[in-house]
Amino acid sequence: MIQLEQVTKTYPKASRPSLDDVSVSIDKGDFVFFIGPSGSGKSTIIKLLLHEITPNSGKVYVNERDVTTMRSWKIPTFRRSIGCVFQDFRLLPNRTAYENVAFALEVIGKSKGVARRVVPEVLELVGLGGKEHRYPHELSGGEQQRVAVARAFVNRPLILLADEPTGNLDPDTSIEIMRLLDRINRTGTTVVMVTHDSNIVNQMRRRVVEIESGRIVRDQPRGVYG
């Protein structure tokens, strides 16, 4: 499903590579944590998978497609098979929960009718039934992240990328979001999560890939934060 082969990425003007000869393989339906200190290169992996950046060397395969050689006009369609959530939610402040999720459908050409059918369903799934018409500022942090998860998942992507999704949330709310991601994982969606929240990693007991200074130092099934 996802494969990195000897990937090296050095940002311009950086003294050392963010990722240094990294190889990792993730199967369909996996749930993987990428952990490590700030600046270790975890988030660079997310950016590579989204084709926001290209590696200096090595290959990145997502859904059996070589992302590194993908033509730029194919990227939008490619991204429709990937959902993404971030630490800062990235919701549109002037749209309601419903409109935020519907927006993601409408801008890729889905009709309003499809949105009317699918959006309440997915909002129900993330536990926001009844709060469809609240604006982000009327929702708690955890609820906002649920909206973001709903938006990422509404298109039924094969892969869900989560870049520190609990970074702005308190421990209890974080657990709830993790339960949600776990539920999504059980539908067959591959989940890749970057975090340095040790509590969560230890509770979930899923595969853990630890990165330090751009290198993989540990890759353990059912791992802990360590």
Binding site: P76, T77, R79, R80, R90, L92, P93, V107, I108, N155
Partner: peptide, 17 residues
């Protein structure tokens, strides 16, 4: 910029953006 960032993230086509 927010809308554009979301559109790029969810894979809206370039012409649409």
């Amino acid at each position: 910029r927010r809308e554009v960032a979301v559109m790029k993230l969810v894979g809206a086509s370039n012409w649409f953006i």
